[in-house]
């Protein structure tokens, strides 16, 4: 009998789990048609939104404090930002939390030398990078065609980039909270669909928030959703002056920290109540 040799590396923290970033791309490559459908879908959405807003502004030069070009910039970039997290919406993702809990394969998340939260983070980040690549491509095309405005100078671009990243972190934690709810609900399809509708509506993906009625706008401003899309895009199009950027970035940072703490607490609770359906 030969004894098992446990390599020294087993004692160390894993350093290669970041390679999970590639799972999203590998999944997409497994269904090559998706690589064709994704840009087509995006092109159709952008074209229809462009026509829609052009029609809305047919008889007016300004609405909700925005010009047509500003509105198109906001609305089309909001669509692109919505595309960033498209694959990270895990309702139908086979190795996401909802399906893993439903099918019982969540057990394997707890049998790995990286925490379930870390695994989730790498998977989500991979999906966001993949979605982000399509969004960036769409941005380059729209800018090349001069359909949307450029950022307001170098400072505007930097502030937008920071706000965009913070907004993605906020949306990441919000989506994660909905996913972790699966540990209690065992089926969260309804919750997830409702959540994503509310998120898209109150973040500004469907319609720029300045077009919302005052009450709805006030509610949206006080909820974390607007940090995801409205805050960075308002800075980008100049509706929010750069002088107010610190306040806006501070609000986004607050949501990042608060949601991170909530998520951490939820993971601890969820880890103690793993149930495995089907034996």
């Amino acid at each position: 009998m030969t004894s098992i040799v446990i390599p020294d590396v087993a004692k160390r923290r894993p350093h290669r789990s970041w390679r999970l970033l590639r799972v999203g791309l590998l999944n997409e490559r497994a269904f090559r048609i998706r690589l064709v459908v994704a840009p087509m879908m995006l092109a159709v959405q952008l074209y229809l939104y462009d026509r829609l807003w052009a029609a809305v502004f047919h008889h007016t030069g300004k609405a909700a404090g925005l010009t047509l070009k500003q509105t198109l910039t906001y609305a089309l970039m909001a669509l692109l930002l919505g595309r960033v997290r498209w694959n990270a919406r895990t309702v139908n993702v086979r190795d996401g939390i909802p399906i893993s809990v439903r099918e019982g394969t969540i057990v394997y998340w707890f049998l790995r030398p990286i925490s379930p939260g870390r695994f989730y983070m790498w998977r989500q980040t991979g999906d966001v990078l993949y979605g982000g690549a399509w969004a960036l491509l769409g941005y380059v095309v729209l800018r090349a065609a001069d359909v949307i405005n450029p950022p307001h100078g170098f400072n505007g671009a930097v502030v937008f980039a920071i706000s965009l990243c913070l907004g993605q972190v906020v949306l990441y934690y919000l989506g994660q909270i909905v996913d972790i709810a699966m540990f209690w609900m065992l089926s969260n399809n309804g919750l997830a669909r409702m959540y994503y509708f509310v998120q898209d509506l109150l973040s500004g993906v469907f319609v720029p928030l300045p077009f919302m009625p005052p009450l709805m706008l006030a509610i949206a401003t006080w909820l974390p959703f607007s940090s995801g899309v409205n805050v960075p895009l308002s800075l980008y199009v100049g509706r929010t002056p750069l002088s107010r950027a610190p306040e806006q970035l501070g609000l986004q940072l607050f949501w990042c920290v608060a949601l991170a703490l909530v998520t951490r607490w939820l993971w601890q609770r969820a880890s103690n109540r793993v149930t495995v359906q089907g034996g």
């Binding site: 999944n27 497994a30 269904f31 019982g104 057990v107 394997y108 049998l111 790995r112 030398p113 089907g278």
Partner: peptide, 21 residues
Amino acid sequence: RTSNARSIGAVFGQKTQLWWD
């Protein structure tokens, strides 16, 4: 759990730990 994961392996019947696609 993290250290334990290095010492153990598991197969749970019909539940797969492989990536389906």
